[in-house]
Design a protein around this nucleic acid. Structure first.
Lengths: 283, 283
DNA sequence: GTGGGGCGTCCCGCGCGGGGAGGGTCAACA
DNA sequence: TGTTGACCCTCCCCGCGCGGGACGCCCCAC
C-alpha cells in the first residue's frame, strides 16, 4: 500500500515530482508539460540530473491550474492568470472566461433545441416563397469576420447602427425591420463579409455606419423561428426547395429580423426571414 | 456575387460537393472527412473521377450531424445516431448524450465554485487532525475504475450497497456514515481501485457487495465541504499540512461521507471527511 | 482549345493529454 | 559493496476533429 516502497520520501521542504503529483492529483506527465510551458516552474531543477523539485507553496497554484483546465481554459490563458499577481486582475481574467463559458452554454442550448426539431418525426412544413426585391438604399455596417465571431460582431454592429440612426433623428424611427447580408464564404471557409443594415432614405455616414445600395435580386424566402444560430436548418429547407424547383443560388444570403433581440429576450420567439438569391435555371 | 462563376451548377437531382456544402453550411473538407468516416456517404461517387454527388434528401442528415458535432458528440457516436433508422432509438441515443452534457455542466459548475474558493484572498483556515483508526470490518463494493467514471460508479455502488444492507435487515440501519477508499493510482494514472463501504458488524455477500477488512492506519483528516469533485482542494491543503508536519503519505486515501447525496441534493451542503494515511518520518 | 474554377488525394499543423522506449539516479537491502 | 527496484529524465508517437497547403486532374463557358 506504500505508494513508493524502497525509498524514504522525506517530504522535506521540497517535493519530488512524484510526491507533488500525489498531493495535487496532477499526473507527473502533466506536471512536466506545465513546466515546459512555463506554467508551473519547479522551485528547483537539479542541473546535473534534471530532477524537478517543487515547493509545497506551489500546491495552491497547481490547483488553480487544475481547475482552469477543467474549464477548458487554454494553457496560454491559464498562464496569464497564474502569472498575474493582483487578485483583482486574476478575478477579472477568470470572469472573462466564465462569460465565454456562458456564451458556449447558450450555443449548446440552441443546438439542443434545433436538434430536437430536426429529429421531430412530424416536421412542420416550411413555407418558401419566391419574391422579387428591388434595389434598396440602407444604412449599413459591414465587415470581414470569422464565422465564430458573428454573434458578437452582430450585437455590436446592430447597437452602433441603432445608436447612429436614432441620434441622427432625421426620420421618425427606422422605416422597417433591420436586415443582414452574409457571404457564402462565411459558411464555406469560416470567414467572409457580413453586413447588417436598416432601411433609411438618406443614410448617414458616421463611425462604422455608411450608406449602401443593395442590388435587386430574386429571393427564395422563408421564415425562421428561433435563435439565429439554428437558422441553417431553415437554410437547408430553403435549399431543398430550390433544388426541387430547379433554381440555383446566386449570391450572399439575406436576412430580415422581423422579431429579434431588441423586441424580446426569448430566442424561441425570434422570427427571421431568410432569403437566398436565385437564378432561374429554366425560364 | 455568383458563388461559382464559370460553371452552370444545374442543381439537378444530385448535387456536387460544393453545392451541397453551400446548402448545408458544412465545409467541403468536412464533407469529405465525413464520407471517409462513413458518416455521410455521398449518394453517388463517380468511379472514374472520384467526384462525389449528394442527394438533396441528405441535407437533413447533414444538419443532424452538424448539430451533434456542435454538441461535441464524437464522430463514432454521431455515426451510430444517423445510422439508426428507428426514430425512438435515435431519440434515446441523443438523450443519453444530453445527459452526458448535463453531467459535464455539473462538473463545470463545481470547478467554478472551487475556483472561486481557491482565488479567495481570505481563505478559511482548514482544521487538520491526526487520528488513529483501528481495523474495521465493513460491507463493501470495490472495482478498478477510470478516474472519469468515478461519479457514475460511485452512484451505482452506493445504491447497491444501500439496497443490499436494508434488504438484509440484520441491523436497524447502518451503524455509521458510508465511506470510500481510493487508490492513489486513480489520481496519478487516471485508473485505480475504488471502494465504497458502510460499517456492518456481519457483512453480507450479495451481488457486488462483500465483506472487507480495512487495516488500521493513522489518518490526517480534514472535512471537505462542497461537491465531491472539488475535494482535491482539501486534499491539497491536507498535503500541505503533511509536509509542514514532516509526515509522508502511506496508502490509499479514505473518505467518510458525513453529509452526502442521500441526505440532501445540494452539493454545497455536502460534508466529506477526507483522510490521508501517514507515516511518521520523525518519531 | 484554353483558362480558371471545381474536385481529387496526400501530408502537415494545432492543443492537450497519454503510451511507451531507453537510460540515468538514488536509497535500502543483502 | 554491489544489487535491486522504484523513481526520474528525455524523446517520439498517437489520438481527436478541423484546417491549410501542395499538387494534379476534370470539366465547362467562353
Amino acid at each position: 500500500m506504500d505508494p513508493h516502497p524502497g525509498r524514504g520520501c522525506t517530504l522535506a521542504d521540497v517535493l519530488a515530482i512524484g510526491d507533488f503529483s500525489r498531493l495535487t492529483h496532477l499526473s507527473v506527465r502533466t506536471l512536466r508539460r506545465y513546466h515546459e510551458a512555463g506554467l508551473l516552474v519547479p522551485a528547483r531543477v537539479d542541473a546535473a540530473t534534471g530532477y524537478r523539485s517543487y515547493d509545497p507553496d506551489q500546491i495552491p497554484t497547481a490547483q488553480v491550474i487544475h481547475r482552469l483546465r477543467e474549464l477548458d481554459v487554454p494553457l496560454p490563458d491559464v498562464r496569464r492568470v497564474v502569472e498575474s499577481p493582483d487578485p483583482e486582475e486574476r478575478a477579472a481574467l477568470v470572469a472573462r472566461h466564465l462569460r465565454r463559458l456562458e456564451a458556449e452554454l447558450d450555443r449548446t442550448r440552441a443546438a439542443v433545441s434545433s436538434l430536437r426539431r430536426l429529429l421531430d418525426p412530424e416536421p412542420a412544413p416550411l413555407a418558401v416563397e419566391l419574391r422579387a426585391v428591388g434595389e434598396q438604399t440602407v444604412a449599413a455596417v459591414a465587415a470581414e469576420v470569422d464565422a465564430g465571431d458573428v454573434p458578437a460582431w452582430y450585437a455590436g454592429a446592430m447597437a452602433e447602427l441603432a445608436a447612429v440612426l436614432t441620434a441622427d433623428g432625421a426620420d421618425a424611427g427606422p422605416g422597417g425591420p433591420a436586415g443582414g447580408v452574409y457571404d457564402n464564404a462565411l459558411f464555406e471557409e469560416g470567414r467572409g463579409r457580413a453586413v447588417v443594415h436598416r432601411p433609411c432614405p438618406d443614410p448617414p455616414r458616421r463611425g462604422r455606419v455608411h450608406p449602401l445600395t443593395l442590388p435587386a435580386v430574386e429571393l427564395a424566402v422563408a421564415t425562421h423561428v428561433g435563435p439565429h444560430d439554428a437558422s441553417d436548418v431553415t437554410y437547408g429547407e430553403v435549399g431543398r426547395w430550390l433544388v426541387d424547383n430547379a433554381l440555383t443560388v446566386a449570391g450572399p444570403v439575406r436576412e430580415t429580423y422581423l422579431v429579434g433581440p431588441p423586441d424580446t429576450d426569448d430566442p424561441a420567439a425570434w422570427r427571421t426571414e431568410v432569403g437566398w438569391p436565385v437564378f432561374r435555371v429554366v425560364p
